[in-house]
Simulated assay, not measured.
Amino acid sequence: MEITTPSIEVAAKRKKLWLAALKPPMYSVAIMPMLVGSLVAFAETQRLQAGIFVTFVVSAILILAWENISNDVFDSATGIDVNKHHSLVNLTGKKRLVFAIGNGCLGLGIAGIIAIALQQQDPTVLVLILLSCLLGYAYQGPPFRLGYQGLGEILCFFAFGPLGVGAAYYSQTQSWSVGSQVAGVIIGITTSLVLFCSHFHQVEDDIAAGKRSPIVRLGTQRGAQLIPWLCGLVLVLIVVAAIGGYLPLWSLLALLSGISAIRLSLQALTYHDQPVKIFNLKFYAIGFHFWSGVLLSLGLVLPSVL
């Protein structure tokens, strides 16, 4: 049977929608807190428990999958995703199945964290991750839906920053350090920046659904003007942490991520009020999040390697 050009185009479009729905680049958001937290521990102790690290990373990916999937389900209930063609609920038309898959991911992720807690005979890591999950649920889940009040970025900061990075550090050392919490603040800001940048293209949909996102409250211009300051704060924190001895001096390598910060800032300032052109702004933010995290991680490892 001959495959027509329209059929090929429809298949390609559907594949693109599925990729957008599954959000592969977003999973660096789950991996980075685990990577940075564990490597801060390595820089301080010269030890890395590889099995715990791998378990934590896999669990974090599964938990983020739950959050992304359940958010699609919760958003479908409010009607805010009516124009979001890459919503998993809109793609499949099977809300209950999507919700069940999301909850399955959560169960498997928490099981991995329980395994770490049992191995260490210490519930601290489990408590920290459960707190992060609670914040993740409060973001979009009923009856809280705090993301609709513009509080999503604050929840994201704590869940992926001090709590996420702190949990990864504690899983390696069963202790605390200033360095791990400074790193947590850095990762928390860059992660929240990803969420912040995801609002620019959907202001009209947010307003229609009664969602008071930061960009709805600030306007796109003021929101765009805030981005260079947030990026600058991250870079200043890296300098202060390295010079203050909380992180190795090699951590200054992360300043190279300033290139991504400039690209992100220019994109926001230039196209903030053009939904079609600003649609991909969150991917610029993911770029800054990724490179700042990877370069910081490299800076944590290099002193031991050299």
Rank of each mutant, 00 (worst) to 15 (best):
Y271D: 12
S76G: 14
Q274Y: 03
R96K: 12
Q121G: 08
V98Q: 10
G258P: 04
Y148H: 15
F196C: 04
V239S: 00
S177H: 08
V240Q: 13
V165P: 00
L39K: 12
D81E: 08
T124D: 02
I113G: 01
V73E: 06
A224I: 05
G299L: 13
S171Y: 06
S132N: 05
L253K: 02
T173E: 06
A20M: 06
I116G: 00
L91Y: 03
F158P: 02
I207N: 08
C197N: 14
G299H: 13
I80G: 02
P143R: 06
C197Y: 13
V236P: 03
S28Q: 01
V54L: 08
L296A: 12
A43Q: 11
Q225W: 07
S132G: 13
V36G: 03
L233W: 07
T4D: 03
L126T: 05
S175A: 15
F196A: 02
S213G: 00
F279I: 04
G109N: 07
I215V: 12
S28A: 03
D81L: 06
L118M: 14
L134K: 01
A224M: 03
P25I: 09
I207V: 15
V82E: 11
F56H: 01
A60Y: 00
A183W: 06
A100M: 09
G112Q: 12
R14Y: 06
L134P: 00
G223K: 04
E153R: 08
L118R: 10
A50W: 04
L135W: 10
V98H: 07
V305W: 12
S38L: 05
V165E: 01
F290R: 11
L264E: 10
P248A: 06
R222S: 01
I189E: 02
V236D: 02
L131D: 01
H199S: 00
V127A: 09
V178L: 14
A65D: 01
E204M: 12
L19F: 11
R14L: 09
V127S: 04
I114Q: 06
L134T: 06
L64G: 00
W250F: 15
L108H: 14
T270I: 13
A60P: 00
L195I: 13
L237P: 07
I8W: 10
G258D: 05
L237Y: 09
Q267K: 15
I207A: 12
D122E: 07
D81G: 11
L247P: 05
L296S: 12
S192Q: 14
L298R: 03
H272S: 14
V58H: 01
G107A: 14
L62F: 11
L163G: 02
L130S: 11
I154W: 12
I238K: 12
Q119I: 07
L218H: 14
I31C: 00
A167F: 03
S59E: 01
G166N: 10
G210V: 08
S76V: 04
Q49W: 00
V10S: 02
R217C: 00
F99M: 11
L131W: 08
A268L: 14
E204K: 15
G287M: 05
A208G: 03
L131G: 01
L128V: 05
S251C: 15
F200I: 10
V40H: 02
S175C: 09
W18K: 05
F158R: 08
V239W: 08
L106C: 12
